[in-house]
């Protein structure tokens, strides 16, 4: 889980080009730059490390022939820069290479799993985002009362738990010991089947991700809302006789949402990382499970492709959060 709640987006609030469109273009360019550097990092970490990746992949018992074959498959015989160039060219054109373990094109191998993961993340997001905003805002309104203090303790405890602990606990509770076989503890959704047709299998993985993300966003939302409720303009709204409901809906909420967008983005992005563990817990056939499997089997093309994919998701989500923040914050909007 991430705590970069600094509120201010990472970059670009001192723009020179005018207008929201200009801002988006600049942030996109910056995002592309970040992705370019990320690609260097990924490539360096997986392929250009000292030592022989082929031997690392095949292990000590590899025969010289199989090593030679693998080196050729990975283009290891060519200069590093050429290897990188080819790899990037492949990324851009969608040719992600061939999976060493599955022995099929990476894009084919990942396609169905990507759909599965996207659906899991989507389901978790549409539940956890409104839920966390509601819990946070309500706790702020009921500050120091029973709801607030119990929500505070509960979110604190849940936020501290690693998600595999949450996931396995849910399995223990709902699939094995206490309510045996109430819910499936394993989500056997084969790649290619449509996950939305098997909602029962989705329940526990989704719940795990929701529990992993909601407490943190709720806590940020609460803090942000309390700050706004203590602000002078909210006091002023009360002093000019605005009814309490209007004070909350019209004066407080819009101002409290700005910083929360950043956190939502970080947590959506976090969901993209959290699926790695959660999919493994539930044997869910998605990119997370694929990544874990690729790491264990040292399937480098798949690792590279997934690393780039998840990094791209991060960059896009941060961009969206910055834009959303600007849209709800007039002060920032006109400064563009």
């Amino acid at each position: 889980m991430d705590s970069a709640q600094s509120g201010s987006p990472s970059a670009g609030f001192h723009p020179r080009l005018g207008g929201l469109a200009g801002f988006i273009v600049r942030r996109l360019l910056l995002g592309l730059l970040v992705l370019a550097i990320v690609s260097v990092v990924v490539f360096a970490a997986t392929q250009a490390l000292p030592g022989d990746p082929a031997r690392a992949i095949l292990g000590r018992s590899a025969t010289p022939d199989s090593l030679k074959a693998l080196r050729e498959q990975l283009n290891l015989n060519r200069p590093v820069l050429t290897q990188y160039g080819d790899w990037v060219k492949g990324l851009v054109t969608g040719n992600l290479g061939t999976s060493l373990a599955a022995r099929e094109p990476v894009s084919t191998y990942l396609h169905d799993r990507l759909v599965n993961s996207a659906f899991l993340v989507f389901l978790s997001a549409i539940i956890s985002i409104p839920l966390s905003i509601a819990i946070g805002a309500y706790a702020a309104l009921k500050r120091d009362r029973l709801f607030d203090s119990s929500a505070s303790i509960l979110t604190l405890l849940l936020a501290a738990l690693p998600e595999f602990v949450v996931g396995v606990t849910l399995v223990v509770l709902f699939a094995t010991t206490i309510f045996p076989h109430l819910l499936p503890g394993v989500s056997n959704i084969a790649p290619g089947t449509e996950p939305w047709t098997q909602l029962k299998e989705m329940i526990l993985p989704t719940l795990t991700l929701v529990i992993a993300v909601t407490p943190y966003v709720a806590r940020i939302m609460r803090a942000s809302m309390i700050e706004v409720l203590e602000s002078e303009y909210v006091e002023m709204a009360r002093l000019k006789g605005v009814p309490e409901r209007e004070v909350v809906v019209r004066h407080a909420l819009p101002n409290a949402l700005g910083p929360t967008f950043q956190v939502i983005a970080i947590n959506l992005a976090y969901l993209a990382g959290g699926v790695i563990v959660v999919e493994y817990v539930f044997n869910y056939a998605g990119i997370g499970g694929a990544l874990q499997n690729a790491v264990i089997t040292r399937d480098l093309p798949v690792v590279q492709a997934l690393a780039m994919l998840i990094a791209a998701v991060y960059v896009v989500l941060n961009l969206l959060a910055d834009v959303a923040t600007i849209l709800v914050t007039p002060r920032l909007r006109t400064r563009l």
Partner: peptide, 18 residues
């Protein structure tokens, strides 16, 4: 930001994979 573009566990996995 470049490091932040990976979930923590993802970067650890990539390194450990190799």
């Amino acid at each position: 930001d470049v490091i932040l573009a990976f979930p923590q566990i993802m970067l650890a996995l990539v390194v450990v994979a190799t």
